[in-house]
């Protein structure tokens, strides 16, 4: 295999990796704020793509309006999921809440099937045109959008976390709800904002990749699993770990296609997930347990 071919696999791996990173980040944000694995995270991805297609077809919105509209709608759904499904049970053990998110995931998927139909749908490319060729590897323009939007999302998220009072409240909430409430942080609202952010990341991933892969009401489960594997790979240890976990998973998948067989592509995430859980449950960056005072 020559350099261009190998590079082509790397491009593909980093494209999927960026998507996994956004989903993993959604898992990681919610987990650190609540101790809950939100199994509805994949549905946010599904909603991003589906709502955008629906807004174009049924409402006649231009792509430029349909994309942000899809993100906004999904953010609202994310906030509502927290408010209606999780908050009433927020003092229950995490396992109860995790089961609730599985239920939410089923509900969202059924609703999507009812509203948008059972068919695969496609979103047009954001900027149509020929691929960009770099060192013999072709990079689709939409892939550049995926990378660009991922980068913007990461920067915005980083600014929120490090530069704003809300971000400080989020980091405090991740350490201890009780301590945060004692200093005046409304942790219930922080958790709602975190769900909204996680939904935004999922929707962004879904809408950015929809022109490349098509979308349907049931795409959430698969991507949710990938994102979950990426988050576990990063040890659920924070935003950077989640992003690295996503990129690593994307690359490993893609290179396994190059060197083994495309048959096993989807199994790779599961194998990696199990390997991490068996061998190094604290993730690639393995602090053995979270430090608390």
């Amino acid at each position: 295999m020559g350099v261009p071919e190998l590079l082509q696999f790397v491009v593909s791996g980093l494209k999927n990796g960026a998507i996994y990173a956004l989903i993993a980040l959604g898992f990681s944000l919610v987990y650190s704020a609540t101790g809950v694995i939100n199994f509805a995270q994949g549905e946010f991805y599904m909603l991003g793509g589906m709502v955008a297609v629906w807004a174009m077809r049924s409402l006649g919105l231009p792509l430029l309006a349909a994309v942000p509209a899809a993100v906004v709608v999904t953010v609202a759904v994310g906030a509502l999921v927290e408010r209606l499904a999780l908050r009433p049970r927020r003092f229950e053990p995490p396992l109860v809440l995790i089961i609730i998110t599985i239920g939410v995931s089923m509900v969202l998927q059924s609703l999507a099937r009812h509203l948008f139909g059972p068919d695969e749908l496609a979103l047009p490319a954001f900027t149509p045109g020929p691929s960009v060729v770099v060192l013999g590897a072709a990079i689709e323009r939409q892939t550049l959008w995926v990378w660009g939007l991922t980068a913007v999302a990461l920067i915005v998220l980083w600014l929120i976390y490090t530069r704003t009072k809300l971000g400080l409240a989020m980091r405090a909430t991740a350490v201890s709800h009780d301590a945060s409430r004692l200093v005046g942080v409304d942790t219930a609202r922080v958790v709602m904002v975190v769900f909204a952010l996680a939904a935004a990341l999922g929707a962004l991933a879904g809408v950015a990749v929809a022109p490349l892969t098509q979308t349907a009401y049931d795409v959430g489960a698969r991507i949710g699993l990938k994102g979950f594997a990426a988050a576990i790979l990063g040890g659920l240890g924070g935003p950077v770990a989640a992003v690295v976990g996503g990129l690593v998973l994307g690359l490993v998948e893609s290179l396994s296609v190059a060197f083994i067989s495309s048959t096993y592509k989807d199994a790779i995430a599961l194998v990696l997930l199990l390997a991490v859980l068996f061998l190094k449950p604290s993730g690639l960056f393995g602090r053995s347990s979270r430090e608390k005072v």
């Binding site: 980091r171 350490v175 005072v293």
Partner: peptide, 18 residues
């Protein structure tokens, strides 16, 4: 119940959060 991973300054800023 300090915010262990956060800095002393951030802990104090959180004290004034309300």
């Amino acid at each position: 119940m300090l915010f262990g991973p956060l800095t002393v300054e951030e802990n104090l800023r959180l004290g004034a959060f309300a």
